[in-house]
Simulated assay, not measured.
Amino acid sequence: MEQRIGSSSQPLDVPAAAVDPAYIPGLTSPAPAEPEDAVEETVPEEAETAETEEAETAETEEAETEEAASDEVTDEAAEEADPDGPVFEASDRRASITADHKGVRLRLDDQECEFRWDEIGAVETEAPRFGKRFTVTVHTPDRRWYPVEIEAKAKAQHKEWEAALDEVLDKYFEEGADEEDPAEESAP
């Protein structure tokens, strides 16, 4: 019995494969064949323009309605928030953390992220035993966390930062929990 040594596949026609990737078998799915008796549908141009105008009008009305609703929500949120409340700000040459009535904003180099208070599950701080790096980690309800490290000028600054951040968290982050506690206590 004779056997061939080497590959059993045939070489491809390289110029055709370079121009049309569909030439390579198995690379793309075959195009569905159209039945020969298929008839093209033609739509008059006037009908197309009327449908397009109706769609644009509907989109414009929806956008205006959404914008009005978002303005109302923004106004209500601005009334509820206390812009004169406590603010925590810490930064070094690369990173910064800001926590105020709007939420928590983290920045590291050219990357920024902002969390509203309702998007935050927990805020964790860590001050190492040795060193000057102060770490703030924002945890979200969907099990993601965003840490930022800030280098303090002196290790004593960590206590100041923790106290200031605790004050902001007590004011804004704990508000929802305080409102729920009385309802739980009144239940039998």
Rank of each mutant, 00 (worst) to 15 (best):
V138T: 00
D142M: 09
D142R: 00
R143N: 06
F134M: 10
P147I: 05
V148R: 10
W145K: 14
D166M: 06
E180G: 03
L169T: 11
D142I: 06
T135P: 01
I150Q: 00
P147D: 08
K155F: 09
F130Q: 10
E124R: 09
D170A: 13
V168C: 07
A154L: 06
A127W: 03
V148W: 00
T137G: 04
G131Y: 02
D142C: 05
F173K: 11
H139D: 05
E160W: 01
E149L: 01
V138N: 04
T137P: 01
L169W: 08
L165S: 08
K153Y: 11
V138P: 01
L165M: 08
Q157T: 12
K171E: 15
E149N: 15
W161N: 09
P147H: 08
W145P: 09
H158Y: 06
E174R: 12
D170P: 00
G131D: 04
V123D: 00
E151L: 08
R133L: 05
P147N: 09
K132C: 04
P141K: 00
R144F: 10
F173Q: 12
A156M: 07
E175T: 12
T140S: 05
A177L: 13
P128A: 11
A177D: 13
T135E: 09
E149R: 13
A163F: 07
A156F: 11
D170Q: 11
H158P: 00
D181C: 08
